[in-house]
């Protein structure tokens, strides 16, 4: 994002602030913070050129713990503030930290429009499928029927899927990772940083206090090989403890097939980050029958909004010359009174 090289070798500790981290013990936010602080020094961006912007919610405390520039704003509006900052200052590396409530409920409108515009901002959406800061109401990603403080006999709301929402806006970079998968999380953040345009990462996050086991079985050592489908560009979609299952396309639908029972890798679809239809199918796989896809679902090139704006400004100066205030004031019909 920034072309200016870091002056000296940065380290993780350079990104740690003097503020006490105040998330609940065991919260996935700790793991995400640790990985982000670990990756940032490796991106080659001077620390002073990095800005973290958040909305409201537990995840939105994030900027206070990052020793970069930071802006803890208001509920749902981080994408709007980040848009203005990035368009005004294309030289900065701008990161938005949001959650399933902040980004998809109160801030849903801003989220879809920043994705649509493809402003060169990286968005980390922590999805724990619950409202944490307000102590446990259901969120737009909570499962239907969820019993919470505000839905004592079950939520009547149908949830939506953050990845499908992002893909629906024609976002140019859409990925999913998991709070406790340190390496994968780091790699996904790196990919997001490299991408020119809005990068959207859903980070699945367990939250032991109000929504323990939100993604049960997904990260446990003994089950995760069966429950995660790790996507890699150009590689067949294989999963399972013994790498013995794959995802095949059949009749326009995806299905799980066993690689020992007559199917081979050549029968499987190779993962293609530029294919919008496959990306959408992957985003909608029902969790009960399929593993959960993680990785980059979509990555395509499209000129970011901020670059188009900068180009328009450059052209305006080129064709009209730099603006002259006296000329501007004297535009149109004028007359002289003597």
């Amino acid at each position: 994002m920034s072309t200016v090289a870091a002056p000296s070798k940065q380290q993780r500790k350079d990104y740690v602030t003097d503020q006490d981290v105040r998330w609940c013990p065991g919260c996935g936010d700790y793991a995400i913070l640790a990985q982000v602080q670990k990756v940032m020094p490796e991106l080659g961006v001077p620390r002073e050129n990095i800005v973290f912007i958040s909305g409201i919610g537990c995840s939105s405390r994030f900027p206070y713990y990052m020793n970069t520039y930071g802006f803890h704003s208001i509920h749902g509006r981080a994408p709007a503030i980040a848009s203005g900052l990035k368009v005004a200052r294309p030289d900065l590396s701008v990161w938005v930290v949001t959650g399933d409530g902040d980004g998809l409920s109160i801030g849903g409108n801003h989220l879809i429009h920043i994705l649509r515009r493809n402003i060169n901002v990286n968005i980390l959406l922590f999805n724990n499928r619950i409202y944490g800061l307000t102590k446990g109401q259901y969120s737009p990603t909570s499962e239907q029927g969820k019993v919470t403080k505000s839905t004592p006999i079950g939520s009547p709301d149908y949830p939506f899927n953050p990845l499908s929402v992002a893909l629906g806006t024609d976002a140019t970079f859409v990925a999913r990772t998991i709070d406790v998968e340190a390496k994968h999380l780091q790699e996904t953040i790196r990919r997001a940083h490299e991408h020119q345009g809005t990068s959207f990462i859903e980070i699945l996050q367990d939250y032991n206090l109000f929504n323990d086991g939100a993604f049960a079985g997904l990260t446990e050592k003994d089950t995760k090989a069966e429950t995660q489908l790790v996507l890699e560009q150009g590689k067949p979609r294989i999963f399972g403890k013994n790498r013995d299952k794959g995802i095949r396309m059949s009749g326009g639908k995806l299905e799980v097939v066993g690689l020992s029972g007559g199917y081979s890798e050549t029968d499987l679809v190779q993962h293609d980050e530029t294919d919008p239809h496959l990306a959408f199918l992957l985003s909608t796989l029902p969790p009960a029958a399929f593993p959960t896809p993680v990785g980059v679902l979509r990555c395509v090139e499209r000129t970011p909004y901020d670059e188009i704006v900068a180009e328009q400004m450059r052209k305006a100066v080129e064709t009209q010359g730099p603006g002259d205030l006296a000329t501007l004031l004297n535009r149109g019909d004028t007359w002289v009174v003597s």
């Binding site: 800005v51 709007a80 503030i81 980040a82």
Partner: peptide
Amino acid sequence: FQAEDEIAGVGSALGAAFGG
């Protein structure tokens, strides 16, 4: 910046102010 709504109009402006 023609924003998506009134809130983003002022929000983007505040972001730009942060940027100078």
